[in-house]
Structures are given as structure tokens and as C-alpha cells.
Nucleic acid binder design. Structure first.
Lengths: 208, 208
DNA sequence: CGCTTTTTAGACTGGACAGTCTAGTATGAA
DNA sequence: TTCATACTAGACTGTCCAGTCTAAAAAGCG
């Protein structure tokens, strides 16, 4: 009940234990979905159940905290497009980077989790969307705008063009990973596919 | 234990009740995910719990039966591409049709369900993939091949090209729907986006 | 009608799990 | 050292639910 700035009395809560709980819970939620018991969390964190409840009021809160934490960590760096590369090189670089992100085990599991919770927790989906896809689309669009100004690309609607390339990139590989369907493309095939997407994009939008 | 061809003794199982159970369970699973109680199913089907168990051995079986049923119903008709339209008209037609399918409430909910169950039930994901996305990609690729032969398109790798257009189409609208993120594109915007995808595709692959 | 099987309503079992409580121990701050 | 609080181990409560069981009613079939 005391204000945050007051000096706390007695033994302070251990930030370290809180982090242990975070880590354990995040790991478990990504592994098994929302069906994780608080006893499991406590055990994996090496902490008593009561301690879990003393740091996070209930399971819902713990879940949200973990997911929020995770969402903000899935961003491509802001300065990504501020490098001195040719248009084609930059597009390839972005495509590979983005594709890698899309295929990482954690990102896949996070997306599954959010799909599963879409009805129940749209706020989390929104957070994910804003800090992941929407953010990337915005900075990619900025980049396209700058290239259009410089005459390296000819695009009437850069918002649409940005979406087209980004969605094209997440092809079969992402779908197979998301649904856990065997027989998806090999890493080499995926690389080739991603490059083909950049080629197609440039054929449609490249300056003659 | 009797062979299927023997005449059954006594009162036969009601196929109608079985269908009621199917319908109720499918509805509920799509609404609420796997967290549906067998009592709920029985109640919504207007049938006793025991009857549910007499038609489907357990919850897992019931769930799989419902999902399998649903998967095969998400196919675009096989003869879709056998119509007499210009290349551009055909692509637009396909794009709109596919986009509509992608955005239907049931399809979204089914995909969410499969994401959530990806670890636990990859067989179902595979079924969905084969009868939905993979099937469409295959017939679309056939169509592209035929157009390449006729000279209407210039494509070196039709498998890649088919994927590119299909994944491009499922843009923001699908992502917003899947994650239940508010502020997605309006139907009109989506229409325009889909048409822009066809334009881009033709600019990259159309015969000069 | 008689036989057999389905269907029903409802009670019941066993297990899982969120969240609470207790009693004792550990630990940082003053 | 004292005090307030964190932490631990574990028992406990209440709820939910898959799946079973029972006894009686209903219904197809010969």
C-alpha cells in the first residue's frame, strides 16, 4: 500500500527471483501453451509456489507479463535500413533477416500462442502486431519512400508495395513451421525462394 | 464386434444424433478451442452425455473427427481454373475467391485451432495443409504452366511464382483476422490490395 | 409381442489445478 | 539486535471435468 518512492520496510523482494520466474514461465508457456500449472512454474524456477504468487498476482497476470516481455524483443533494429547498400543488396539483406526472424522457434511458438489466445486476449495480439509486423512494415515503407525519391524504385503506393514483399517472403517455410507440417522447404530452398521474391519485387517496381 | 455387413440386432444407432453431435461439437470447438467440456457438447447437441460417448469414444476422437470434417470442406473447387477468362481476369477471380476464403470466420478459427494444437496434433495440420493451401497451390501452378505454354505469361519457375502470388494475397487482412487485432483494412481496402497484388504479379511475369 | 440395443438423467470417481493458508525459517534494513 | 517482510514446504479447499456406472424408458426389428 505504500507509494513506490517510499523506502520499503523489512526484507525487499528479490528481483533475481522475479527474473527466474519470468524465465521459467516464459519457457514453459512457449513450450506448452497456456496449459501450464503454477506448480510447474514454481518448480522450474526453483522457487516456492507462494513466491510466484507474491510476484505475480495470478496466472493471467503472469502469462501477460511473459508475453508482453517477449513481444518487445521481436523487433528488427530501428537503424536497419540506414546502411550504405545498393537497393538490391538492402532488399536481400532485409529479406534474409526477416525470414530468419519468422522461422525462429520462439517466434513461431509465440505466434501460435497468440493465435490460440486471440479471442481471449486481443490486447496481447495487438502488442505483438504493433511491435513486430506493423513496426517493420513502417520502417520498410520509409525506406521504399527514400528510394523512390532517389529514383532507384518506381512505386506509386509504397505502403502496398511494402506489404507485398513482406507477405511474399513469409511463404511455405513459415506456414509449415507455424502449423508444424512436415515436408517444408529446406533452408537452401527457402533462401532461394526469398531471393526470388526480391527479384520479382524488383521486376515489378525497379527503375528501368 | 460383428462385421459391418451383418444385419445389426436391436435398435440401430441414430445417424441423425451423430450429426447433431458433430455439428454441436464443431461449433463449440471453433468457438472456444479445445477447452470445451463433453457436458457442453451433449447439451448443445440436445443429447445425453452417454450418447456422445457411444458415438465417439473420447474427446480426442471427437475433436479429430470434427476437424477432419472441417478441413476437407475448405477446398476451392477443382474445376476453378477451367473457365474461359483472360489471364488477368482469371487471376483476379482467383485472388478474390481465395481472399474470401482466407477471411471467413470459420477458416480463421480453424487455423487458430490448428496452430494451438500444432505440437499435439501435427496430423491434423497436415490434413489441413494438404487439402487447403497445398492443393490450391498445385492447381494454381498447373494453371500458370498452361498460360506459360500459351505465351500469356513468362515464368521460369511456376512453383515459386504460384507461391508468391498466393502469399502476397494473404496480407494484412488475414493477419489482423487471425490474431484478432483491431484496425485491419476495410473490405474495400482489401479488395484494392488484392487487385494490386495481381497487378504486381503481372508486371513481374506478364508477357510484354 | 419379445428381444436387443440405444438413449436418458443423473449420480459418481479420480485426477488436475488455481489459489489460500499455516507455521516455521531466512534476510535485509534501521 | 529487532522488526518487518520475503521465502519455503506442504497441506488444504473448491472447482472443473473426462470418463464410468446404473436403472429405467424408448425404439427398431423380427
Amino acid at each position: 500500500m505504500s507509494a513506490a518512492s517510499e523506502t520499503a520496510k523489512g526484507r525487499p523482494k528479490s528481483e533475481e527471483k522475479k527474473q527466474q520466474i519470468y524465465r521459467a514461465a516464459t519457457q514453459l508457456f512457449l513450450e506448452k501453451g497456456y496449459d501450464v500449472s503454477m506448480d510447474e512454474v514454481a518448480e522450474r524456477a526453483g522457487v516456492s509456489k507462494q513466491t510466484v504468487y507474491s510476484h505475480f498476482n495470478n496466472k493471467e497476470k503472469l502469462f501477460c507479463a511473459c508475453v508482453e516481455n517477449r513481444c518487445v524483443s521481436y523487433q528488427m533494429t530501428d537503424s536497419f535500413f540506414q546502411r550504405d547498400l545498393s537497393t538490391r543488396e538492402m532488399l536481400l539483406e532485409m529479406a534474409h533477416q526477416f525470414n530468419g526472424l519468422l522461422l525462429s522457434d520462439d517466434a513461431i511458438r509465440l505466434k501460435r500462442l497468440l493465435c490460440a489466445q486471440a479471442d481471449h486476449n486481443p490486447r496481447l495480439s495487438e502488442l505483438f502486431h504493433d511491435s513486430g509486423p506493423a513496426r517493420l512494415k513502417a520502417s520498410f515503407q520509409d525506406y521504399l519512400d527514400s528510394q523512390v525519391r532517389k529514383g532507384g524504385l518506381r512505386i506509386a503506393d509504397t505502403a502496398t508495395a511494402a506489404r507485398q514483399l513482406l507477405f511474399m517472403i513469409q511463404g511455405d517455410a513459415h506456414l509449415h513451421a507455424l502449423l508444424n507440417v512436415p515436408g517444408g522447404p529446406s533452408p537452401e530452398e527457402t533462401e532461394r525462394y526469398v531471393e526470388a521474391c526480391v527479384d520479382t519485387f524488383l521486376r515489378a517496381y525497379g527503375a528501368p
